[in-house]
Design a protein around this nucleic acid. Structure first.
Lengths: 137, 137
DNA sequence: TTTCCCACTAAGAATGATTCTCATCAAAGA
DNA sequence: TCTTTGATGAGAATCATTCTTAGTGGGAAA
């Protein structure tokens, strides 16, 4: 993604555009896996030697609050960040600990239909996600 | 559950039966919520003043490995333990941070059927769980 | 332009959950 | 009984994350 595109996303989230936010957002957008704060830090450190790990944590959190990225917790309890905003499920490989995306419109439709019909008592659903654990072959 | 019942479960898991394991398993079995290691420790401490928090962590982990309890990670990255072994989904309340169980045979059947038909390429599924986030009313 | 202000950042200390280390202990088997 | 092995207690160590504090820079207003 180009600088203008990133700037747009950040400012549309109601945030000031800064160099640090630019490189951090860029790292998330380019990552194919689901990076941790540490991953992002390692990724950008060589080109931005003065950046601080604390800033990475704080900025990622700011992005989550602004709704321009998502976060979730992995099996080990570590925060993972994700530039994809649409709902999608995750595959956890027990062998390699990799996390990959799984997206299937039919499944989403199935779940939506199911929970429309079967409301949960005294509970207002915001989002549903599926966690699939297994092994890569 | 009575002592004999707990002893049975622990020894059937291939583990030696000890006093600590007894009280820790009992705490998990009686808990209605999904306790953390710290919760279990607080729960049993008054009757077992010499028990160590490290032992609670280690024992819970031993139980998980032996397959007699389950564990998962909550939104905040903290380990939660669960004496229920059957597959079931969790409801996360964004207001109170409570986690409750959700079990629905129809939903399970639906998912099983779906993934039987729609195998995931190069991935062997062990278990599927659903995370439902929202608010208690 | 100059000043003022405030959000942003860097650096590292502090925290909280979890794991590790190691000495001691207890039970089961030889 | 002696030995061995695994379990336990105590607390140190680790790891991810948050907090604190001081310093910086860019925009708004005069």
């Amino acid at each position: 993604m180009n600088i203008e595109g990133i700037k747009n996303i950040i400012t549309k989230g109601g945030l000031k555009f800064t160099h640090q936010r630019m490189v951090i957002y860029n790292a998330i957008a380019e990552a194919k896996n689901h990076p941790t704060a540490e991953h992002v830090f390692e990724q950008i450190k060589s080109d931005n030697p003065s950046i601080s790990l604390g800033t990475v944590y704080k900025t990622l959190d700011t992005f989550v609050t602004a709704g321009i990225i998502q976060k979730f917790v992995d099996n080990k309890g570590v925060m993972r960040f994700d530039g994809i905003l649409e709902a999608h499920s995750h595959l956890y490989c027990k062998k390699t600990n990799e996390i990959s995306d799984y997206k299937n419109a039919e499944l989403e439709a199935l779940l939506t239909k199911f929970f429309d019909k079967n409301q949960i008592e005294d509970f207002d659903i915001d989002e549903i996600s599926i966690v699939i654990k297994g092994q890569k072959l």
